[in-house]
Write a protein that binds this DNA or RNA. Structure first.
Ligand SMILES: [Zn+2]
Ligand SMILES: [Zn+2]
Ligand SMILES: [Zn+2]
Ligand SMILES: [Zn+2]
Lengths: 166, 166
DNA sequence: TCGCTGATGTTATACTATAACAACAAGGTG
DNA sequence: CACCTTGTTGTTATAGTATAACATCAGCGA
């Protein structure tokens, strides 16, 4: 099965995660330059912190991390950075967890679907037109005009299925 | 188009909403009797309050309403009632709003999809197997075992589209 | 240099949810 | 009836998430 619709699959332990972070930061830098956005040191650092792992991270965890940097930080500091990163597609918010995760494809706006492992907390991001379209069709049938889709699926990733069979 | 998959469509102003509330309470009563659950006065009242309108209501709004009843109430009062109602399928939680809405079909467990009007705040509840299934298929293709789907679509309902064209 | 704009600093507060233990009510058992 | 068990509710305190409002600062162009 083609994985063209998977923006970010579940990443195995031991993959080259430094490369994930570097790519995310480089892409953000490029996109900001192209769009005339200011990727300030604070915003870049928050983005880097969000990308520390392939799992959603809470705003107050980010706050603690900023403070560990030695930086003075309070809630608006992190929420404003997140607002910028969300608006410009560098991170997504996971509504069901009140948490934030790096976007695997920030170069174009998209409607994503998330698979969230309840055991290891890792997240996969899909951008599957078939899912979006069938929802759009059903909404159209009711006269509803969609502006945003929130699709978050909880369960067990393949790796956790094997190690924690039910 | 058949509406078999619509558990609760957008309700027009002026419909017989007393009947909606009465039906919801009667159904809850029946289901609780069948299952040996205790629909206490508090739980019944919270369910009735959730059903006051066809839109999601926040826990603290319910709390205020309980206090307006003259009842002494604190957060655990309403959260415990909501926990009971959620566990037994009488209400759903809308993650993207931190709010709760009455379920249109509590007699059997189901995975619902919600359409939420950003203008009038009314909600429609779907139970569309085609949506659930395509998500399940995609998840299967990645080795993911689903335990729960959160599908919340924001936009404009038909009525609001007409009155607030964009 | 001045003044504008956007970003960040800072303080305070609002909103959402749960932990922990006490009191109470209903139903079964002796 | 006295007693116990279980589940529900009362009560106090606190945890967790997010934003309002105003001050300050840095960069940039007039
Ligand atoms: Zn990685
Ligand atoms: Zn996992
Ligand atoms: Zn109604
Ligand atoms: Zn509407």
């Amino acid at each position: 099965m083609s994985e063209k619709n998977v923006l970010s699959d579940f990443k195995p332990d031991g993959h080259n995660h430094e490369a994930c972070i570097d790519t995310a930061l480089a892409t953000a830098s490029t996109v900001c330059r192209e769009r005339g956005l200011r990727l300030t040191p604070l915003r870049q650092r928050v983005l880097e912190l969000v990308w520390q792992q392939h799992m959603p991270v809470g705003a107050y965890d980010l706050l603690d991390a900023l403070r560990s940097d030695g930086r003075r930080a309070d809630p608006p500091t992190v929420y404003r950075a997140l607002e910028f990163l969300l608006e410009n597609g560098f991170v997504h918010r996971i509504e069901s967890l009140n948490a934030y995760v790096g976007c695997g494809e920030p170069k174009h706006a998209h409607s994503a679907q998330f698979l969230i492992c309840g055991n290891c907390n890792r997240v996969a991001e899909l951008e599957d037109p078939a899912i979006s379209q069938i929802i759009s069709e059903k909404a159209d049938g009711l006269g509803f005009r969609i502006s945003q889709q929130t699709i978050e699926v909880t369960g067990l990733c393949g790796e956790c299925r094997e190690h924690a069979p039910a």
